[in-house]
Amino acid sequence: MSDTYAVDPWAKEPLKKFIGEANARLALLMTPAGQVIAQHGFNRAVDVMAAAALGAAIVSSTTAVAKLLEEPMFSALNHQGEQHGIFLAGFDSPRGRMIVLGVYGTESSPGLVQLFYEDFVRDIVAACPDAEPPRKVLAEDFEKELNESLSALFGT
């Protein structure tokens, strides 16, 4: 069975609960830049990176369309296929805006995912600590931090 992994430990339990309740197959919690905070169900780093990049790009595009229409930001997007559906939504947290990408199968539904997404947002906002002060990114730390993040996301 797939497991839930998180770079930031506070994100793990809320994501796990969301997956269980909404009966989703895959999920990613990330920043609008596509930086992954937690994931469930992905086995390969390349899949996580592709899903995060594509999800963040979709949110970025719909945000741009919303601006053109002088609308506030779109809150959620749902695409339903024959066997799978995707749910993509953004919310504000103490650490800034976050994006959730969920993939669900025929055992779930857009209604269930939407319903438990609202609980998930409440859980994440409650669990999320305040933003850390920005620090200088050093080239010598970059590879180490990247490797640590990948290890946290895949439990290696």
């Binding site: 009966n23 055992e107 779930s108 539904s109 209604g111 269930l112 939407q114 319903l115």
Partner: peptide
């Protein structure tokens, strides 16, 4: 309403 709808349809399924 939205919770009843989502859960009732899941239950029926």
């Amino acid at each position: 309403g939205n919770a009843v709808a989502a859960l009732a349809s899941s239950l029926a399924k």
